[in-house]
């Protein structure tokens, strides 16, 4: 069965978020809006954040079109960062970056909660950027750095 053979990369959570992405809408009162673009595969997303004066991410949503990996990644990310401080979100990105690029046994997948389902991409070098694009976009958004982020 194809599904069984791909389980390493495509876990059920990924299929679920791909079919029913969470926070998939425009946010009217967002105060950070940044586009992410992966020219290699044509994936595009727009990330909306509402960050309050205490640097807490009050709300996160997205729009766009991408593969199952990038859609699940951004959907999971918006769930995870809601309510977190900007600093916490950036720390999460760092941990996420580690699990998607290295096989280091020190990494504690449990700390990442649901995000750990994306760890499989580390065995698919050409797909890593699909998973990390949303996070690069978020990182630029919280820093107020750019309006468009690309993976290249």
């Amino acid at each position: 069965m194809l599904q069984d053979e791909m389980r390493n990369l495509y876990q059920e959570v990924i299929f679920d978020h791909n079919r029913n992405p969470r926070n998939f809408h425009v946010m009217e009162n967002a105060n950070r809006i940044v586009d992410g673009y992966n020219p290699l595969c044509g994936d595009r997303l727009t990330l909306y954040l509402l960050i309050d004066d205490n640097e807490i991410i009050q709300n996160a949503s997205f729009q766009g079109e991408g593969c199952a990996i990038s859609t699940a990644s951004v959907s999971l990310m918006t769930e995870m960062i809601k309510g977190k401080t900007v600093k916490q979100a950036e720390q999460l990105f760092e941990q996420f970056h580690n699990i998607t690029t290295s096989h280091d046994d020190e990494i504690k997948l449990e700390e990442l909660g649901k995000l750990a389902v994306l760890a499989g991409v580390r065995d698919y070098p050409s797909r890593v950027k699909c998973a990390t694009l949303p996070w690069h976009t978020m990182s630029a958004a919280v820093k107020n750095e750019a309006t468009t982020v690309t993976t290249e």
Partner: peptide, 26 residues
């Protein structure tokens, strides 16, 4: 409902090499 990248990776699991992308023709 299936992105070409996912098609490419899925095909690879079946031993099939196809290309997924913009083919240098954006």
């Amino acid at each position: 409902r299936v992105h070409p990248h996912d098609i490419g990776t899925a095909m690879d699991h079946l031993g099939i090499a196809i290309r997924a992308g913009h083919h240098c023709a954006m």
